[in-house]
């Protein structure tokens, strides 16, 4: 394995002369010869270029999965949050990693901030542009759905993400991220109404201004295998989501059975995701969401 310095040195040196006619042909095709004298119009060169073109065509046929950018941005947010001090959290280890001092040395912090700004600003612009057209938190709904699936299917990822294992510590976690107390739903009461608290952790639901947000996982008392996610975002964005109703999001989802509810309460927008309608309904009732019956919204 060469070092970056080796590579830099290497980059300044000319390529060695071709050791064979075959190598000369290949390098002529690849534009890696200073002079390709005698090889102009050579069918062997043409054949090499055709192969390169075919390889390029076949290998470029890979589409970036929808939402991957948002997912990466969310991960960066989590990492950034983890590197910041959390003055309002009673147990600093909840969201502060052991290498914080390394990240916060002046020089490193400056470099990290620069890189983070590049990545985050680009992703934020994309996300906000999408939401502004829909009027609803479409990107956040998509994110919630994917994050729910990811946590359901990837235990190692969940283990890293969910740091809080006691329902009583969730308000502190949220307050620590927001920098002040936030009126979050009464999860302890919900846990006594058929929901079983599993864990919670910081999250980065895409929203204007990148507000504090958390992800709480539940199961059902009657069905511990049920997977339920509650995302809470402290924001005044998305005024379409009023505090008077609960919205059931209908979308051309890849998983038709999955149900997502959205509502607002006390300055917090919630996204509830469950793998089936029954679990979602149980959770919605346990959380006492606003309105009599959910309004369905097509995204």
């Amino acid at each position: 394995m060469t070092t970056p310095r080796d590579q830099s040195d290497q980059a300044n040196q000319p390529l060695p002369a071709p050791q064979s006619e075959a190598e000369r042909v290949r390098r002529a095709a690849d534009g890696e010869l200073d002079t390709a004298h005698g090889l102009e119009g050579d069918p062997r060169v043409a054949a090499e270029r055709e192969l390169r073109s075919a390889v390029g065509r076949v290998m470029s046929d890979v589409a970036v999965p929808a939402g991957l950018g948002e997912r990466v941005a969310a991960a960066i947010d989590r990492e950034t949050l983890a590197a910041q001090p959390a003055p309002n959290v009673s147990d600093p280890t909840v969201i502060v990693r052991s290498n914080r001092s390394f990240w916060t040395t002046p020089k490193v912090a400056g470099l990290v901030a620069l890189a983070a700004a590049v990545v985050l600003s680009l992703s934020a612009v994309v996300l906000l542009q999408r939401d502004s057209t829909a009027g609803m938190p479409a990107a956040a709904v998509r994110f919630a759905s994917r994050e729910h699936d990811r946590c359901s299917n990837n235990p190692a990822y969940s283990d890293r993400k969910f740091m809080v294992e006691a329902v009583g510590e969730v308000p502190e976690l949220f307050a620590g991220l927001a920098g002040r107390p936030v009126g979050i739903a009464d999860l302890a009461s919900a846990s006594a109404s058929g929901l079983m608290f599993v864990a919670a952790g910081p999250c980065a639901v895409p929203a204007p201004g990148r507000p504090a947000s958390i992800h709480v996982r539940f199961a059902l008392d009657e069905d511990p295998a049920a997977q339920i996610s509650l995302f809470a975002v402290e924001t005044e964005a998305w005024p379409v989501v009023t505090g008077a109703a609960t919205y059931r999001i209908s979308r051309d989802a890849r998983d038709a059975a999955e149900v997502t509810y959205v509502w607002r309460s006390s300055g917090v927008v919630y996204f509830l995701v469950a793998d089936d309608a029954e679990a979602a309904e149980t959770a919605r009732e346990a959380l006492s969401t606003p309105g009599d019956a959910p309004e369905t919204i097509q995204l």
Binding site: S20, A22, P43, R44, A47, E48, E50, R57, V58, M59
Partner: peptide, 27 residues
């Protein structure tokens, strides 16, 4: 770097798009 000629050379002018599936499998 091996000095032998490449098998590609005999395929000049052929329609590579016809073998996209085979090429993908080979890669």
């Amino acid at each position: 770097t091996p000095g032998e000629g490449c098998a590609t050379w005999s395929l000049a002018g052929l329609d590579w798009e016809q073998v996209d599936g085979s090429l993908k499998r080979a890669i």
